[in-house]
C-alpha cells in the first residue's frame, strides 16, 4: 500500500488531514468482534477435530492400554506392524476394490437418472422425489432392508433370479459376493444424494444454450457431449470426490450386513479401525490406520480443490 516516495494522497493528508490516532484497542475492534462470532466454531473444531487429529498422530506412535492411555513409545512400529499385517493388507485391498465398485457406478447411475429427470415433462416432480428418496434413508435402515433382500432363505432377490432362470447367488455368504453385495447397498444409498446434486447442476445450465443448439439443429447426443457434460464438469467432479470420500468412510452397512466377514472380505478400513480400537482396544494400531484414512481423504480433497477451483469458473 505505501510507496517509498510521498504520494499525492499522503501529501494531502499532511496538509488537511487530522488523522485520529487509533489506539491498539480501536484498531483491533473488527478482529475482536469477528472472533466473538467465530469463537463457537473455532472452539468446537479445536476440541473435536484438530486436537483429536493431533492425538491420533500421537497415539499412532504408541502402544496403549485399554483406557487409551499411551504407555510405550514405539515410533513407526505400529505402521510397520499394520503394513506387514495380512489383515490390514486385506482390508486395504477390500477397501480399494469397494471404492472401485461403488464410485463409478454411483455417479453414472445418478447422472443417467438426473438426465432423465431434467426433462420438462408432466409429473416430473413426482419422479424427482422418488429418485432422490434414498437420500433420506439411513445406513441402518438401508442395510437392514438389503440384509433381508439378500437373505439366503427368505430373500426375494434370489426368487427373482430363479424366475428368470438364474440360479441363486450366495450374496452375503461368499467372500467375493459379500463385497459386491455391500457395494450394491452402498450404490443404492448414494444414488439419492448424487442424483439431487447432479440435477441441481443440470438446472444451473443456461437454457439458452440448448435453445440455440436446437435452432442449429443439433441432435440430443451432440448436445449432451458438447453442452451438458462440459458445463456439468464441476458438479461431476464434486460429486465424484464426495462419493470417493464417503466410500472410504463406509461403516454401517458393513456392521449390519457382514461384520467384516466372511473371511475378512468386507473388513473395510473404518470397520477395521472400529474393531481394533473398540473391540480389541488396540488404540495404537487403530490410530495408525486412522492416519492412513486421513491421508487418503486429505489427498482427495486437495485434488478436488485444485481441479474443482479451476473448472468452477466455467459456470
Amino acid at each position: 500500500m505505501s510507496s517509498s516516495s510521498v504520494t499525492v494522497v499522503e501529501e494531502r493528508i499532511l496538509q488537511y488531514g487530522r488523522k485520529e490516532k487509533l489506539s491498539w484497542w480501536g484498531k483491533t475492534k473488527n478482529f475482536r468482534t469477528a472472533m466473538l462470532y467465530l469463537f463457537p466454531s473455532i472452539l468446537l473444531f479445536s476440541i473435536f477435530l484438530f486436537y483429536p487429529m493431533l492425538r491420533t498422530v500421537y497415539l499412532s506412535f504408541f502402544l496403549t492400554d485399554a483406557q487409551g492411555v499411551a504407555s510405550l513409545f514405539v515410533g513407526f512400529e505400529n505402521f510397520a506392524y499394520i503394513l506387514q499385517s495380512s489383515v490390514f493388507r486385506k482390508s486395504m485391498v477390500s477397501t480399494l476394490l469397494f471404492v472401485l465398485y461403488t464410485v463409478p457406478s454411483s455417479v453414472i447411475i445418478a447422472l443417467f437418472l438426473a438426465l432423465l429427470a431434467n426433462e420438462k415433462l408432466r409429473g416430473i416432480g413426482f419422479f424427482r422425489t422418488i429418485l432422490s428418496s434414498t437420500m433420506g434413508m439411513s445406513v441402518a435402515a438401508s442395510a437392514v432392508i438389503w440384509l433381508f433382500l439378500f437373505h439366503p432363505t427368505v430373500g426375494i432377490l434370489n426368487s427373482f433370479l430363479n424366475i428368470i432362470g438364474i440360479s441363486s447367488i450366495p450374496w452375503l455368504l461368499d467372500p467375493q459376493w459379500a463385497l459386491i453385495s455391500i457395494a450394491i447397498t452402498t450404490v443404492w444409498m448414494n444414488t439419492g444424494f448424487a442424483f439431487l446434486v447432479i440435477l441441481g447442476g443440470l438446472q444451473n445450465i443456461d437454457q439458452h444454450l440448448y435453445e440455440n443448439a436446437e435452432i442449429d439443429g443439433a441432435k440430443y447426443r451432440y448436445q449432451l457431449r458438447r453442452i451438458t457434460l462440459p458445463m456439468l464438469s464441476p458438479t461431476l467432479f464434486f460429486i465424484i470426490t464426495i462419493t470417493f470420500i464417503n466410500s472410504f468412510q463406509s461403516f454401517g452397512q458393513v456392521d449390519i450386513l457382514t461384520q467384516g466377514g466372511p473371511a475378512e472380505a468386507t473388513n473395510l478400513i473404518v470397520y477395521a479401525i472400529y474393531r481394533d480400537a473398540f473391540i480389541n482396544y488396540q488404540f495404537g494400531t487403530a490410530s495408525a490406520q486412522a492416519l492412513i484414512l486421513f491421508i487418503l481423504v486429505f489427498g482427495l480433497t486437495i485434488l478436488q480443490f485444485k481441479f474443482g477451483e479451476k473448472r468452477v469458473h466455467y459456470q
Binding site: F50, R55, L59, Q249, F283, A290, F294, V297
Partner: peptide, 19 residues
C-alpha cells in the same frame, strides 16, 4: 475452516471417544 473438510470424522473418532 476449509481444512476441517479434509479431516474425516472417523479418523478423529478414537481420541474423541476418549474425550
Amino acid at each position: 475452516f476449509i481444512s476441517t473438510l479434509m479431516i474425516p470424522w472417523e479418523a478423529a473418532m478414537i481420541p474423541n471417544f476418549l474425550t
